[in-house]
């Protein structure tokens, strides 16, 4: 089954433009000359076998590699035409506009409420009433409100794994980013929690541009509009999800899709 909403206009505005991206861990080159366009208000999935570099690639899209010593990024990533690796660019501003959800839910050891309003607070919102509104809106959009509305002042660590992950999504939504990066957001979750996250991603693309790494081809097929296939640090192929899954251009993509790889 492919994405429920068909891709009506194949060419959309490009939100993120990746050009000749190279990422090195010390001497080891994890991403080699990758270039791709990420269309606005669509879900783009990154697939490939373990160790192919898809997580490394997505972390380069909001400069998360800056935090790890020994990682070098070369090339260009343009957000609405502006290179996020440009000389005068503040990575903090970039991460405000490009949020990220991680593989393992990583709620702060604070209350549910404090988790959601963390972003707005650090960006200067202090009005209690507005913060409460932001909190409710974020939790509603992350489809978590009904489950937690009576326990906002309890620890986020008491939530289930799936709830924690939706809380992390709510936390990102609360800072109103333009792009949401998700690094295997459902890989640590059970099937029911996974399907909730997948439904949510379908909702999110109306307002946001979503890039998601997934190790599950079924998941990519279910939720994404575009799919790119990585293998050993190379971006092999990118196209609409239906094209990549039914008529892959590259032999290696076909081998992976049909289960002959990793």
């Amino acid at each position: 089954m492919l994405s429920t909403e068909p891709v009506t206009t194949p060419v959309r505005a490009t939100k993120l433009e990746v050009k000749d991206l190279n990422v090195f861990y010390g001497e080891f080159q994890a991403i080699k000359d990758a270039s791709m366009d990420v269309p606005e208000n669509r879900v783009t999935a990154l697939i490939g076998p373990s160790g192919c570099g898809k997580s490394t690639f997505i972390r380069a899209l909001n400069r998360m590699h800056d935090l790890s010593p020994g990682v070098t990024v070369k090339g260009h990533v343009r957000l609405d035409g502006q290179d996020i690796y440009g000389k005068d660019v503040d990575p903090v501003t970039i991460r405000h506009r490009i949020g990220m959800v991680f593989q393992r839910p990583n709620p702060f050891p604070k209350t549910i409420y404090e988790n959601v309003v963390y972003g707005p607070k650090i960006h200067g919102l202090s009005d209690r009433r507005k913060l409460a509104e932001v909190c409710e809106r974020g939790l509603r959009r992350a489809a978590l409100w009904d489950e937690v509305k009576d326990r906002l002042n309890e620890s986020a660590l008491d939530l289930s794994g799936g709830q924690q992950q939706r809380l992390c999504i709510a936390r990102v939504l609360a800072v109103e980013p333009e792009v949401i990066l998700m690094d295997e957001p459902a890989s640590a979750l059970d099937p029911i929690a996974t399907s909730k996250i997948e439904d949510l991603i379908g909702e999110l693309k109306r307002d946001y541009t979503v890039v998601i790494v997934t190790h599950s081809m079924q998941q990519a097929a279910r939720i994404s509009d575009f799919t790119s296939f990585f293998l050993l640090g190379d971006l092999i192929e990118i196209g609409t999800t239906s094209e990549v899954f039914t008529k892959p251009k590259d032999k290696r993509t076909e081998d992976y899709i049909t289960g002959r790889y990793g």
Partner: peptide, 12 residues
């Protein structure tokens, strides 16, 4: 992971 979570929200 908590540091990354915070930085990914645009925190300094």
């Amino acid at each position: 992971a908590l540091r990354e979570g915070s930085m990914a929200l645009g925190a300094t």
